[in-house]
């Protein structure tokens, strides 16, 4: 236990919720992005999966909309300490998007419109753990929350869920992304409080 802060009582949530260590509950949906929100034209939008050998598979917006969508209700945990529970999304499972890709890669680097990148082990995208989401709370995903489509990997801190997702590159070797290069944890498991390098 840390040192006691004189006169601090804290405000325990009245809801019986189990949050990852160091997190607190919010009801709103804060926006955190590095840089201006890119405005992505649906007419030129594409999403690409590229294997480590360079083999690419690309969807335009109409093709993406035609893919089978799932409804997902998940908890979100941001490294800046807020957690939001029971958020409702619709999107395409990465199992679907990666199903035709021949690969022995173990890592991915995700890139977004606007230049943002983030890296993950490939297995964290598979088996129903990740989606490319294009609807939030029953409506088209707004630009400030990553629309037209964002990655959603709710079991990791939210910076891994790249807004404005554009492509996924499969890699044999791990390559740190934007925040991972500047002090944030390479994996980012909120339940192990992996916020920063060395956590």
């Amino acid at each position: 236990m840390g040192i006691v802060s004189r006169g601090f009582g804290g405000r325990r949530s009245s809801r019986a919720v189990n949050l990852p260590p160091g997190q607190y509950l919010v009801e709103d949906f804060p926006v955190l992005s590095a840089g201006p929100t890119p405005l992505v034209n649906l007419g030129s939008w594409t999403f690409t999966v590229r294997s480590e050998t360079g083999e690419a598979q690309e969807w335009n917006w109409a093709q993406f909309l035609a893919l089978p969508h799932e409804s997902i209700t998940v908890d979100l945990h941001c490294v800046t300490k807020w957690s939001k529970l029971g958020t409702a999304w619709e999107g395409v499972s990465l199992d679907t998007l990666l199903s035709d890709v021949a690969s022995s890669a173990e890592f991915v680097l995700v890139s977004a419109y606007g230049g943002y990148t983030t890296n993950l082990p490939l297995e964290d995208l598979l088996d129903g753990k990740a989606w490319v989401a294009d609807r939030y709370d029953g409506e088209a995903l707004s630009p400030e929350h990553g629309g037209p489509a964002r990655l959603l990997v709710p079991h990791l801190y939210l910076w891994k869920s790249a807004k404005w997702v554009r492509d996924i590159q499969l890699l044999n070797n791990d390559e740190p992304g934007f925040w991972e290069s500047v002090g944030y944890h390479n994996y980012g498991d909120p339940w192990r409080e992996q916020r920063y390098w060395g956590d």
Binding site: G2, V4, G10, G22, K81
Partner: peptide, 10 residues
């Protein structure tokens, strides 16, 4: 911050 009962907030 840490309260006397060990509760913390960040």
């Amino acid at each position: 911050l840490t309260a006397e009962d060990g509760y913390t907030a960040q």
